[in-house]
């Protein structure tokens, strides 16, 4: 009964995701008919060669980035919410995105202080990704140390807030000493954008995401045990230390790589796991894992479609749309809090 319902829900989500993906590619400054989009994607010929070029070189990379980012951030959120026993945990709330930003800020704004060869490496996509992953990893470790001492879930959120403002301050200091050009580069990055990524970068992002997802998949069973708390999980034979390290590496990898390429994107990591929990009404991480992947990809495609005001030249920052959609959902969740989700 429950099983059949889940299969139905997954089918609906799968179809919705496919439609959103295609619609996302159709819409933009130039509207391309669905038929031509499908033609271009399947290797056929579109009615206009320009359309084919736009689809393959602009729209498709952006849609793929949206899918990867949506999946990665949402899974990070799911992992952190169970690990910290905190329904309000998410990569941006706990300051992971800020940590990654700090790493990127050091690279973009501080590269001038380094000599030629080093600067060259650090400013390459690999350098930026590594810096961002390192940044989010350090913040996550710090939060973990604090979480060990403080059992209070609200305190952990406040610590996350403090990290955000701390990294914000350091970025402020760094930008004071950097050139206008560096500053402009960093500011554009910080606004968050899914577009303009070359395929080579998307491949790096995809590899990081798949590695993170694979690690997350290994944690599905331990995460279920952690629903009863750390002590019960240990008594049921779960290697808690190994699980925790896996979760931390997976989240830093996902959040770090994503933030490096697209800038800090808010709300997605926090909201999507909740939508999954509301739709499927379960705590089984096997179900939630797949549900979060499908919903995360769908939501970010949906947000991204709105950033390109249909038929116009303007492109809004993805963060603005994510906040406009995400913030009301969080408020709604808090107002309708049930003991199951919040306690």
């Amino acid at each position: 009964m429950q099983h059949k319902k889940n299969i139905l829900l997954f089918t609906i989500l799968g179809i919705t995701l496919t439609v959103l993906f295609l619609v996302n590619i159709c819409l933009g400054s130039v509207k391309i008919p669905m038929y031509d989009v499908i033609q271009s994607l399947t290797g056929g010929e579109a009615s206009k060669t320009a359309w084919e070029y736009i689809v393959l070189h602009y729209r498709l990379p952006k849609a793929v980035t949206a899918v990867l980012v949506g999946i990665g951030l949402s899974i990070s959120g799911l992992l952190m919410q169970t690990l910290f026993r905190n329904p309000l945990a998410g990569p941006d709330v706990l300051g992971l995105s800020s940590g990654a930003s700090l790493g990127v800020a050091f690279v973009i704004l501080g590269a001038g202080m380094l000599s030629g060869v080093f600067a060259g490496f650090f400013l390459s996509p690999y350098g930026i990704v590594l810096a961002a992953i390192a940044g989010s990893f350090i913040v996550l470790l710090a939060i973990l140390v604090v979480a060990q001492k403080l059992r209070d879930t609200m305190a952990i959120l406040i610590i996350g807030l403090m990290f955000s403002s701390f990294t914000g301050a350091i970025v402020g200091v760094l930008s004071y000493f950097s050139t206008a050009e560096q500053l402009q580069k960093f500011t554009f990055w910080a606004l968050g954008s899914l577009g303009n990524l070359p395929w080579s970068n998307i491949i790096i992002l995809a590899v990081a995401c798949f590695t993170g997802l694979l690690m997350a998949a290994l944690c599905i069973k331990p995460l279920d045990a952690l629903l009863l708390g750390e002590r019960y999980a240990k008594s049921m034979g779960i290697n808690f230390k190994r699980t925790r390290i896996l979760i931390i590496i997976a989240t830093s990898l996902l959040t770090g790589a994503i933030t490096a390429f697209t800038g800090p994107i808010v709300f997605i990591g926090l909201v999507v796991p909740h939508i999954a929990k509301l739709i499927f009404k379960t705590s089984s991480h096997l179900v939630l894992f797949w549900a979060t992947i499908l919903i995360g990809a769908g939501i970010l495609l949906f947000c991204d479609t709105f950033t390109q005001l249909p038929g116009s030249e303007y492109v809004l920052p993805i963060n603005a749309i994510a906040s406009i959609i995400g913030a009301p959902i969080v408020i709604w969740l808090l107002l309708h809090k049930r003991k199951g989700i919040f306690s």
Partner: peptide
């Protein structure tokens, strides 16, 4: 244990079934 359980959507059946984890 006596400690209270963290928030989750677990049903009673699912909770008992977690005992099969080993």
């Amino acid at each position: 244990l006596t400690e209270s359980l963290p928030p989750s959507n677990l049903t009673v059946f699912e909770l008992v079934a977690l005992g099969r984890q080993p």
